[in-house]
Amino acid sequence: MFPPEEKSPLTTDSYYEPIDEHRYKPTAHVSGAWSTDEQHFSPLGGLIVHAIDRHLATRPHTGLLLSRISFDILGRLALDECEIRVETVRPGRTIELIEAVVLIADRPVVRARAWLLAAVDTAAVAGGAEDRLTPPEKLAPWSMSSLWPGGYIASLDSRPLAPPRPGRATVWVSTPLALVAGQTSTPLASYVTLVDTANGIAVRQPPTAWMFPNVDLTLHLHRQPEGGWAGLDTTVTFGPTGQGITSTVLHDLRGPIGHAQQILTVRPLPGA
């Protein structure tokens, strides 16, 4: 069940402020890394999950868990108010498919599809996950703002397990900000708010000379996340014809929870 709304006043200590039931206004903390007049996709991804959670909360609890979600980024994410429309595409008692569409200025800019699967007790056969990461309280902070601009990156507490190197990094990320002012988000929505950060922690080439934005993000989860930290164990590969992949093993403080993949369009910056 979706947590009840808090009755606290609106504050800028959040990524979004609600306008009505389906529309949200981004704050300065959402501004992007590739362009500071656009939204970073990471908080928008969390907002989409937040909207899906609210959609599911309008009906009886089904016991289904969001187990895979894919986001396709269709266009420029202007730093402007957005509307999120959510519908159930394939209802079911044990498997369900939800679709969400984000509109900015009445144009679709993101389309997301989420598979919900039945919650079943499989603890007796659980296994196969990797080891836990060194916890963040034992690690020193790293200022990602030295590499990337924008309000979103500036909002993060980032703690690498070792100095990031080209194409490889393992970093804990967290934020003190709420996702939506005056509303409580589920642990999953709060976690997804941080996942798209993965494409910026293990850069293969300087972002001042090369562009490598992702046009999608897909998460597969074998366990629901807990706590306020996202552990991103990330590998970035560039191919020879303009495509790249950012692959991440996702962790929370208890251990691995799943995987994320991002496809990149790799190209030199004009004049660089």
Score class of each variant (00 low, 15 high):
residue 205 Q to R: 15
residue 164 P to A: 03
residue 44 L to F: 09
residue 225 P to H: 08
residue 233 D to P: 09
residue 150 G to R: 01
residue 65 L to W: 08
residue 272 A to C: 11
residue 142 W to Q: 14
residue 210 W to G: 09
residue 232 L to S: 11
residue 235 T to H: 08
residue 160 P to T: 05
residue 111 R to Q: 08
residue 11 T to G: 10
residue 236 V to A: 05
residue 136 P to E: 06
residue 255 G to D: 03
residue 65 L to Y: 03
residue 217 L to H: 14
residue 64 L to D: 06
residue 244 G to W: 01
residue 17 E to F: 09
residue 241 T to G: 04
residue 55 H to E: 09
residue 167 G to K: 00
residue 54 R to Y: 05
residue 254 R to G: 02
residue 77 L to E: 07
residue 212 F to S: 01
residue 102 V to H: 02
residue 71 F to L: 01
residue 49 V to R: 00
residue 107 R to G: 14
residue 238 F to H: 07
residue 139 L to F: 03
residue 170 T to C: 02
residue 144 M to D: 05
residue 73 I to T: 08
residue 269 L to I: 08
residue 172 W to D: 15
residue 230 A to E: 10
residue 257 I to R: 11
residue 43 P to D: 02
residue 42 S to G: 07
residue 62 T to F: 04
residue 230 A to M: 09
residue 65 L to G: 03
residue 247 S to R: 12
residue 33 A to N: 04
residue 186 T to W: 00
residue 67 S to R: 15
residue 63 G to K: 00
residue 221 L to I: 09
residue 129 A to D: 06
residue 134 T to P: 06
residue 131 D to F: 06
residue 93 R to A: 01
residue 140 A to L: 15
residue 195 V to R: 07
residue 186 T to H: 00
residue 136 P to T: 14
residue 137 E to Y: 08
residue 21 E to K: 15
residue 78 A to I: 15
residue 44 L to Q: 11
residue 145 S to K: 11
residue 116 L to D: 05
residue 14 S to C: 12
residue 79 L to W: 07
residue 199 N to R: 03
residue 121 D to E: 13
residue 255 G to P: 01
residue 185 S to H: 05
residue 107 R to M: 15
residue 159 R to Y: 13
